[in-house]
């Protein structure tokens, strides 16, 4: 039963591998060209395991940014993960050990899979998490080896996989007009803010703002949302 749940979680992530592989390769190539060694490039995927933060870090290493700005940027870009574990913690009561383990591998994608499937079991979550961890680290390793041979994903248009994959996570969650309004409002606000304050902070602010707005508006409705 537990093993079945782990495999189901692992399998649920497979459709997203399509989008992850080119970016794992591209991250590794940009990290290598920013002067990181193969070991450092791989280490970041092993211990940080956060795509957009790793891309920004590669860019910051390239311009010799200070360690402080690297760590702060990582903090801002990854702050949304606090909302994910807060949400998971409300839905499921994992033991301390399980919290410590599942927190290490927690990503947008794993949280999205668990939420959209409504399966909050530890085995399912860990299966989804390790599925992404494996493919992210494998593609990092290949990219770090292959180096400059990997084409720029934006030239192939492979970067379009990301909005498409996030749409695939988002659409099943939308069950009312209010849900649709919150998703569209947060998206448009993030698009407008990104140019002013950077996309990491924009996602954080609109993620929090959209959640509060949704809670406030759903509280005003007579019948509580499901």
């Amino acid at each position: 039963m537990v093993r079945g749940d782990f495999l189901r979680g692992f399998g649920s992530m497979i459709p997203l591998w399509v989008g992850v592989v080119p970016f794992g390769l591209a991250y590794a190539v940009s990290a290598r060209s920013a002067g990181l060694s193969l070991l450092e490039t791989q280490l970041m995927s092993l211990v940080v395991f956060a795509g957009s933060a790793q891309f920004s870090a590669a860019g910051l290493f390239l311009i010799n940014a200070s360690s402080v700005s690297l760590v702060l940027t990582t903090f801002i870009i990854n702050a949304r993960h606090l909302l994910y574990s807060l949400s998971l913690g409300q839905r499921a009561s994992y033991s301390w050990g399980r919290q410590a383990i599942s927190a290490f591998f927690l990503t947008d994608e794993a949280f999205g899979i668990v939420t959209s499937q409504g399966n909050y079991g530890f085995a399912f979550l860990l299966g989804a998490e390790l599925s992404l961890y494996g493919v992210w680290n494998l593609s990092t390793f290949l990219g770090a080896l292959v180096g400059e041979v990997v084409p720029d994903p934006t030239v192939l248009g492979a970067d379009f996989v990301f909005p498409v994959a996030f749409l695939a996570l988002l659409i099943p969650l939308i069950r009312s007009r209010l849900d649709l309004a919150v998703a569209a409002g947060a998206g448009v606000a993030a698009l407008l803010l990104a140019g002013q304050i950077g996309s990491g902070l924009a996602i954080l602010i609109t993620g929090v703002g959209g959640s509060l707005l949704g809670a406030w508006l759903s509280g005003r409705e007579d019948n509580p949302s499901p």
């Binding site: 949400s87 996570l169 409002g185 959209g210 949704g214």
Partner: peptide, 9 residues
């Protein structure tokens, strides 16, 4: 609403 607004963003 967290996943809805974050994935929208």
């Amino acid at each position: 609403f967290v996943p809805i607004s974050v994935f929208g963003a």
